[in-house]
Amino acid sequence: MTDSAAGKPTLEQQLFDQWPDGLRALFDGTSLVSKIGFTASLLTTDTIGHLRTSLLGIGELYAPDSRSLCIALWPQARCARALAQNRRAALTFVFDDAFYQVQLEFVPLPVDDDARDASAGLVCFRGSIDMGEAQRVRYARLTSGITFALEEGKDATLERWMQQIDYLKRAAGRSS
């Protein structure tokens, strides 16, 4: 894409195979209150080729290292079933004025029977980054993607998120 007036490219692309520092900090499992509203879209393909999407909040995403992302999904979610079958997904989101798409290959995380209450029945996966891409254009700044506001039960949701992140941290530690 070019700016016709100046003839200069306007699309800036950044490729990566490990989390840039800002994203690593976003997915580090800390300061969840300040990250409320962030939403990522997890795209999978089911066995008959249909695309499935799950919207994930910051309390369902944890990067244990620079090349991985652990996620927590409800077991009845179509994305959870699709991910268990074909193990590949793309995570898309807006962050720092850019559109991100990260291709990941997932494996299920082992279930910890001692911490089953903390998991709230979620199924968890660990994804390895295959390739990530950030896109920006000079003439427009992305200010948000899909975002949300917590309404009723905000404190209970934050508490659940903290428990989920703790569970993901323990599960990620067992799978290393």
Rank of each mutant, 00 (worst) to 15 (best):
T44M: 06
E159P: 00
P75C: 04
L168G: 06
A84S: 14
E152A: 14
G57H: 05
T30Q: 15
T47M: 08
W161M: 15
W161G: 09
F16T: 13
F125S: 03
T10D: 15
T147H: 14
D21G: 13
A82L: 04
L73G: 01
L23E: 08
D96S: 14
F106S: 03
H50W: 13
L32E: 07
F93D: 00
D166V: 00
Q164D: 01
E159H: 11
G127K: 01
I129M: 07
G57M: 02
A82P: 05
G49F: 10
S128E: 06
R116A: 13
L11E: 15
S176A: 14
P20G: 09
S66L: 07
A98E: 11
I58D: 00
I36H: 15
Q85M: 08
S176N: 15
W74K: 10
D46P: 06
A63H: 00
L51D: 02
F93H: 01
D65M: 05
L91H: 02
W161P: 06
F38I: 02
A82N: 10
D112G: 09
R170L: 12
R87G: 04
S41H: 11
A40K: 08
T39C: 14
K35C: 04
E105A: 11
D21C: 01
P108I: 05
E105V: 14
D130R: 13
D166P: 04
P110E: 10
G132V: 01
T30K: 15
L91Y: 05
G153S: 00
D97F: 07
W19M: 08
C79E: 11
L23Q: 05
